[in-house]
Structure formats: structure tokens, C-alpha cells
Design a protein around this nucleic acid. Structure first.
Lengths: 371, 371
DNA sequence: TTGTAAGCGTTATCAA
DNA sequence: TTGATAACGCTTACAA
């Protein structure tokens, strides 16, 4: 990992004249003594307890200001048995942060934490994470108030231990049919049906599907929705038109190349990234065009979807919102406001842009959907 | 909230039969009572103090196992006055996590934390962050052991307060000339000189430069290196050949479009993203080709550089390694192993691939540099 | 080699 | 309205 290297290091230890790090911190006791009240009073003032007189409160606040007092987080944690820390678990993938799905999720979670006075801690769902049982340890050591897991896979069966212990825990964007773990997800099957239904309405008969990975419940659900809607519209399900795309652009490209020989007239991709790859594959194949020859609908409505050219028709359920919401729920669980399993499904919406061909593309650019 | 229990006599010294959420946590006292030793002994066993007999140690470990004891993080923090938490501050940009520079940095920092038993906490350098003085508060409340800031700008003058207080703090990839804050950076000027020198050696006379933003010290340094090397090689500095590119692909594209009218024969881009944008601009301009007509050299050596076609010649200093190293240093500061200002400069290396034209491109693909 | 007990800095329960 | 003081669960002199 870290290679040895020659490094120019310059130190100047005489830089620090005063402010030795050893300076003892100002404590609640100092404040109490300073105003000649008890520590209990100071504590009550800080928690804005109304039974403290205005006068005393002011005196205390002044002292706090003057002495530069800041309550110790550790002491408070110990007394309250809570850390105000939320742990975010994300898959350990090569460029996990690069994936817009995760970036958006993290932003939503971070914002929710800030809004509620929580700190956000980062955990990778690495091999060590599972082996060392960090998902349990964090709770057992009372180092976190709750865990939110974005992007779990069906292989994460160890999560059962969390279920058994009933710790504040929530899944974001994924879930397990066989575990009573709380979760917030998008309406995956519903979204798929919306997409496929739309394509069918446009007269498409040979609608293909690129899925991410059946190791992920949401991909399974999208696939199920795809099949259901085909049946609903009286269209035949053709396994040759369904290929795995691994969630990224490259995978979508490869999947589409495999599908093309079977003459699809439309594709519903399991996410926008794969949709983008699929479009590239189509346009790269002997003059085929999107949407003229093949319609494409994605899912997720990433920021890139609106910027693509042609702009991507897709399913929106609000990734940022989903993550924000899941975090809020988690904090409610952590503070005991809600108990038991919690399941929320974010509603989906079809965002019609250009790649489905529902709108005629006139000239170079068409007025886009608000995105 | 699990609150107050009857404090009468003995606590439950028996093993937990079931684990309802309200079950009080097993404490060090339970373990001590269970093995009929003192809490001090248990504590010493846990810190693997050699003065404890093998026998007792075994007994204690067994009890810990049997009772499922896990030390309370808060209690330990309070006693040790340390949290084993490192705070990572990153700029609040729209898709901050998408930028490979930050992804790589975060990965390096996370890995260093895990390797050293630290937890990683996330902070955005938002308006609130500065206004609420979180950068100070985190220390004052002893909520963190150290802060690492990736991607600070020259506008972050409030950091002076941290300097004054001498808190464990390190900048990663940036620094301030006028503050004695510790930092780890790449050799920016040196890298620029390497790039420009290489281009000059290839016979280039009109070497352009796309810089990120002069609000960032490293960009300034790269620019300085560029100018120095021009002088060194007896080439004239032409301000028209230097344009701002805002660090991203789009900016690089725009910058290059502005430069093209002035007939450059080479470009040194301040990072790989802008280099990529510049190449697109060149290839998009009336049949110009890279490297035949214009050579391009980037900086950072992102994973994408090797994958580009033609593959990007660039300057490597190891972003992941830089971040890893900065974290290690920070943890050393936090644990008091080192004091005073610390400055490390990661050595740079020229990675010759295809866009500079140093190697002839035969056929479609050329054997690439190991990357 | 082990035990006793004094912190660490809060909060919360009583009593005043 | 306030004050004493016992928790919270751990570490660490200092004793034994």
C-alpha cells in the first residue's frame, strides 16, 4: 500500500511558544465555581431548562463565554449513553465515491445528520468489517447511535445478527425479504412497470432489459416489475432480451451489444449508467439511432440523465431524498421515538425526455423536462 | 431512552440470558465480579499488561467471552481523554465524491485510519462549518483527536485559529505559505517543471498551460513551475497561452478552445481531468490531432489517465499515498509522537504514455506504461 | 501479582 | 430555583 519513498521533511519544533496542548480544558466545574453556582445549575442552563432564573442563566452564559467553556463530548456521552454519531456503511468498491448513486446518498445522509445534530462516521463493508463483526461491535461498545447501510447485497446475511439484537439500523436503497430489518427504498417494481408500460404504450414490442445484478434485491424487483408489465401489456417475455449489466456504463455497453442481435425495439435499463452505456452501444452499431430505432429508458434520474444528448428518459424516486429520509428514520429509532421494523417505499415518477421517443426531437435540441 | 435503574445493592452479575434492547450492557465490573478479581485487573488484562499472570488473564478472557463484554467507548474516551476519531474535512462541492482526487484521498485516509484503529468522521467545509467554528469546536469538545483537511482553498483564512491553538491538524494536498499548518503535498512546482521540461525536450516551442484556479496554492505552484521551466529552456512566456480550467473536464475543454487560436504546439494541464477536456477540444477542432499536432501532459495520474485513448502522459505523485501518509502523520500528532509543524512533499514522477508524442503510436494500440 | 480508590466531566435525582 | 451528590464505565497511581 504505502510505498517507502524519500521525503523532504522539515520540522520546526520551536514554533510553539505557548498554548501547550497540555493546557487543561475548562470544565463545567470551573464555570460553576466562577459564578458561584453548582454544576447542576450550569448543566441545566446549558440544556435550557426553564426552571432556571433568567438572571442565573445570563450569569452562567457570560461565564461560559468568558472562560471559553465547551462541554466534553465524552463525558456527555457517558452520562447520556449516546454518542450522537451515526455510522454510514458503504460497499468497498473500487471507486465507490465516484458512483453518483453513492455520492447523492452520502450527501443526503450528511445533510440529515447536520440538521439533527448528529456526526457522521464512515465504515466500509469490507471483509474485515464482516469478520471482525464491526456491525455489532459499534453498538456493543456504544460507539455509535445507529447504522445506515447503503448498497447492501443479498450476500450480507450476517446482518441477521443486527436484526436479532434490535439495534437502530436501517438499509437505504436495499432490503432483505427474509429479515425484519428496517429500510427505505424506491418503488423498484413500480418504477420498472412504469418504464415498460410507457415503452409498450409507444408501440414497442420487443422490449429488452439490462439488470444490474441479481445479487441485489432491487435489481430483482425491477426485473420482476419488467416481467409483470410485459404480461400486463400482452407482450411475450424473451429471456434473450434480458442481460446483466453490472450497474456501470461499461457493463451497459456490453449488455446491449449482446442484446442487439435479437433485434430489440426498446430497452429498459436498470439504472441510468447502464442506459448510457447501452445508448453508446446502439449508436456504435451500424447507424442505429436512439430513439428512432431503439428507445431507451433508464432508472434513478441521476443528474447526468438530463444532460445527456439525447436526454435520458428515466424513472425518478429521489436518491438524495431517500437517503435523507432513511437517516431521519434512523435517528428516530436511535432516540427511541420509533420502534420495530420500518419500511418505506419512495414513490416513483416517469421523467419523459428524449431517449424514449415519446417526444419528437426537432432540430438539434428539444426543450427538456424540468429536472 | 433506557434510563435509571433501581440502584439498591448488587447489579446483575449473571450472564445475560436474552438480549432485549433494554438489557443493561455488561460492564467491566460484571466481568470482575464474575472472575472474582478487581476491575483494575480486568482493565490490565485488556491492555495486555504483562504483569498479570497467565492464569488470571485466561480466566478474565474467558469471562469476557462468556458474558459478551465490550468496553464502553465513551467511558474509555473520558478516562483517556481521546476518542480515536479523526475528522475528515472536504469542500462542499456539488459532486465532491465524484472527483477521483477526493475519492482516492478518502480511500487512503480511511485505510490509514483502519490500520491504526481510528474511526473516520466526515465534515463538509460548508458555510456553517466556518461560521459555527466547527473546526475549533470539535477539538474543544474533545470530540475528535485530529482533523485532516483535503482540498482547502486560500480563502480558508479561519484556519489560523487552529494554528494558534496548535491542535492536531493537517492539510492534505494543499498548504498556506503564511500559516504554520502542517501539510503533505505533491511536489507541484517540480512536477510542472518535469512536464514542461519533457515537452521542451521534444522540441515544443509554444507550450500552453491550463491551470485550475489561483485560489488554490498548488495551482499557483504548478504555474510557477511552468514559468520557471520555460525560462530554463529558453522559451518565452506568453500569457495568452495560460488559461483557467476550473479543474474539471468541461473547464479544460473551454480553456483549450481559448488557447487554440494562439497556435500552441503543446499543453501542460494542471490536472488529468482538464487534460482530458483539452484533448477533446483539440480533436474537435478541424482535424487537429493529439499528439501529432499538439502534445498534452496532465498531472495527478488518475486511474483514468492510463485508460484514455490515446493514453495520457502525466505527472504522478500518488494521491492515495499522499492521503495515507498525511493521515499517519496526523495520528502521530494526535498521539503526541510528533509536535510542531510538519511539511512533507511527495516526490513526482513523469509517466510517459501517448499524448506527449514521445513514443510513436504504431497501429491502434501501443504498449502502455505500467500504471 | 493484584486490589483500592481517585479521577475523567457530564447528567439527573433528590432534597433543600 | 438551586445545590449535593450519585451515577455513567473506564484507567491508573499507589498500596498491599
Amino acid at each position: 500500500m504505502v510505498k517507502s519513498k524519500k521525503i523532504v521533511t522539515k520540522k520546526n519544533d520551536y514554533a510553539q511558544i505557548n498554548n501547550s496542548a497540555a493546557a487543561p480544558a475548562v470544565t463545567i466545574k470551573n464555570v460553576a465555581n466562577y459564578c458561584r453556582v453548582s454544576t447542576a445549575t450550569v448543566s441545566l442552563v446549558l440544556s435550557r431548562n426553564p426552571r432556571i432564573s433568567e438572571e442565573t442563566a445570563k450569569k452562567v452564559f457570560d461565564a461560559i463565554e468568558r472562560l471559553g467553556y465547551r462541554p466534553s463530548a465524552a463525558a456527555r456521552n457517558l452520562a447520556l449513553n449516546s454518542t450522537k454519531i451515526i455510522s454510514l456503511v458503504i460497499p468497498q468498491l473500487d471507486h465507490i465515491f465516484v458512483h453518483p448513486f453513492f455520492s447523492l446518498s452520502i450527501n443526503g445522509i450528511y445533510d440529515a445528520c447536520v440538521a439533527n445534530g448528529y456526526n457522521l462516521q464512515l465504515e466500509m463493508a469490507s471483509f474485515q468489517f464482516a469478520k471482525r463483526k464491526r456491525y455489532l461491535r459499534l453498538f456493543q461498545e456504544r460507539a455509535t447511535d445507529g447504522i445506515i447501510y447503503v448498497g447492501s447485497t443479498l450476500a450480507d446475511t450476517y446482518l441477521r445478527e443486527i436484526e436479532e439484537n434490535n439495534f437502530p439500523f436501517i438499509l437505504c436503497g436495499s432490503y432483505f425479504k427474509k429479515m425484519n430489518l428496517s429500510y427505505v427504498i424506491g418503488d423498484n417494481a413500480g418504477g420498472a412497470r412504469l418504464a415498460v408500460g410507457h415503452l409498450a404504450t409507444l408501440g414497442k414490442k420487443r422490449i429488452a432489459h439490462i439488470f444490474g445484478s441479481f445479487n441485489i434485491q432491487s435489481a430483482v424487483d425491477r426485473f420482476e416489475g419488467y416481467k409483470e408489465e410485459l404480461k400486463e401489456k400482452g407482450l411475450e417475455y424473451n429471456p434473450r432480451l434480458v442481460v446483466k449489466g453490472d450497474y456501470d456504463e461499461k457493463g451497459g455497453f456490453g449488455a446491449m451489444k449482446k442484446i442487439l442481435p435479437y433485434k430489440p425495439d426498446a430497452v429498459f435499463a436498470g439504472n441510468d449508467l447502464m442506459a448510457s452505456g447501452a445508448i453508446k452501444a446502439i449508436c456504435n452499431s451500424g447507424g442505429l439511432k436512439v430513439p428512432e430505432d431503439i428507445s431507451v429508458v433508464g432508472m434513478d434520474d441521476l443528474p447526468m440523465a438530463a444532460k445527456m444528448s439525447p436526454a435520458l428518459t428515466t424513472i425518478r424516486y429521489g436518491i438524495y431524498e431517500m437517503a435523507y429520509r432513511a437517516s431521519e428514520r434512523l435517528m428516530e429509532m436511535a432516540s427511541g421515538k420509533i420502534t420495530g421494523q420500518l419500511a418505506e417505499i419512495m414513490p416513483v415518477k416517469l421523467i419523459i425526455r428524449e431517449t424514449c421517443g415519446a417526444k419528437k426531437i426537432k432540430g438539434k435540441f428539444l426543450k427538456r423536462n424540468a429536472a
